[in-house]
Write a protein that binds this DNA or RNA. Sequence first.
DNA 1: GGCATGCCTTGATTTGGATCAATGCCGGAT
DNA 2: ATCCGGCATTGATCCAAATCAAGGCATGCC
Lengths: 260, 260
Amino acid sequence: MTFVTQDAEAKGSLKSETTHLDDLTYEGVAPEELPLFRGLPVPRRTDLMRHAMVHSVSAGTVLFEQGDVPNFQLIVLAGSAQLFGRSAEGREVLIEAVRAPDLVIPAAVLTGAPYLMQARVPEPSRFLLIQAGAFRAAVEVEPLLAHAAIGSLAAQFRRMVRQIKNLKLRSSTERVGCYLLALSKRQGTPDRAVLPFEKTLIASELGITRESFSRALSSLGKSGIRVDGQTIEILDAARVAAACAPDPLIDGTDGEGFAI
Amino acid sequence: MTFVTQDAEAKGSLKSETTHLDDLTYEGVAPEELPLFRGLPVPRRTDLMRHAMVHSVSAGTVLFEQGDVPNFQLIVLAGSAQLFGRSAEGREVLIEAVRAPDLVIPAAVLTGAPYLMQARVPEPSRFLLIQAGAFRAAVEVEPLLAHAAIGSLAAQFRRMVRQIKNLKLRSSTERVGCYLLALSKRQGTPDRAVLPFEKTLIASELGITRESFSRALSSLGKSGIRVDGQTIEILDAARVAAACAPDPLIDGTDGEGFAI
DNA sequence: GGCATGCCTTGATTTGGATCAATGCCGGAT
DNA sequence: ATCCGGCATTGATCCAAATCAAGGCATGCC
């Protein structure tokens, strides 16, 4: 089997490329810069690296399918990965986006259980791949690695809990409004939010259809937002907040307590 | 502050009781029987135990509120805890039930971040409480503890992912049908499922109202189930499955790979 | 017994969001 | 420029599930 497959829809001009650790040109995060490896005893690090490689992949690449048994722990060095859930009938929804630097679903790799989600790459990205067995073994014996894994697992768990609360406790318009407020905060622009990907995708992340997302946006127009393509002007954050009841225990992001 | 508060609704005849480790009468799991501690170097274990106690609590007890900063890592020795999400307006939904033996939201304790959920005890239960700081420190340095924490975190993460897929990809009737099938399988009775708690609570776990849950049950009557109070007879599992499209990547439970 | 109280069911109605369908818009290819 | 395919909006309609409302059926208490 191939551990990374080119998506059928991907344009032919883009290609993925594997690099061994020796002949890297670093962009974004270099593996050695990761706190994960900085603190590692040198022999352990070189041992791990012998079971690792860096892989640059193009937009559209499928990293793995749901149901696959993990062969590698993927670490996002640059770019991001999107995790999708798919139903039997083929409907597909975005569950999470994993941004550099982070581990891609350590929960599956560390338990050796089949992936519950498919991973795709929405933009040219670079990953460190560590063979699953070697990674598990290293985490077993190396407290620093265990610490990093725990931090990543915990943060991802909490994101899932937030999402469940969002889905169960709020209406679709509230979800959209709170999403915009959280986004503008994360981007450091209180009066504006730029959507990170296509509206259809965001809609599926929020558990609604693209049409409902569109309507929610226009209905929030009455509460002080203005839509212009991918950027949303937030004219009256207070009114939006009043309409959507944002809640730090749902919309917040834990500070980067643990860094990978 | 008190780390455990008696629920206002709890009947006065029930009481909670704290026990020091010396004068325990063991029922269910004893702390020393946990694989978690069995393998621990003795000095480490005694050190941990000095920051720990066993607490027996009655039904209705609130273990902590959402927003609280964790003071203890709670470990369910006997019984269970239910985790609730609450909206600003006070609507409350069941997010997960944690059954012995397991850790209660290690994600919050290990990151020191505020709980995203409230924990309540639906039945008389026994918990081991380890002071959060001591627990974190022990996990840092003790690979066996780290391993157990990782196993618990990973399993809990995966349950949340399954739940999100369930909510986003299925209709309410499908969720109910698949819930029953999974339940009967878990209980080892292919032709019957006994609901583990009130229907209202299960409905909130499945993201629907109690009325919709009731209607879903009766509409599944046409697919071969029969409702009798808390027990559901499954007359024709195949027809139910056909109607609800169960999926191991949603309804499955990971085998107990990691034991606490 | 009689009467609350809590939980569940069932029916009537409303409504939020999905679905179906048409059109608009933009960027890329030719 | 023109055509095209993918994405987004908007409108019309439908439908699933929520809400509102009324009883039913236990259980426990006085």
